[in-house]
Amino acid sequence: MMTIGLSHYLVVAAALFCAGIFTMMTKRNAIGILIGVELVLNSTVLNLVAFACYLYRGAGKVDGQIFAIFVIVLAAAEAAIAVGICINLYKNWWTVDVDKASTLQG
């Protein structure tokens, strides 16, 4: 219990993942859904860093951290595009309620 192992970090990441999924499922605001996606991506990065630090370590072995850096960069890019889409949605429908934007449903 007092020895912090890999499982402890993975359980925290699982909690973050489930919180993100719950946020994505229950929010109607597009920005709220985006916040849920950020939580899920954070849990992914936490998993990568935990595995890298516990199972793949040694001199020069930093690949897990590099993957994590790429995930963070992609998350930032995704957030920028998604906020742009939300602003566009607001300009066309005057709301960012995702249930209202159902034109493509036919």
Binding site: N29, A30, I31, V45, I72, A76, V83, Y90
Partner: peptide, 25 residues
């Protein structure tokens, strides 16, 4: 990675989200 997280996420992405909230409601 902790520094990157603070700079990019807490400093960049979150500000972007807050601006998105302000511009879209």
């Amino acid at each position: 990675l902790g520094a990157i997280q603070l700079i990019i996420y807490a400093g960049g992405t979150l500000i972007l989200l807050v601006f998105g909230v302000m511009l879209t409601s």
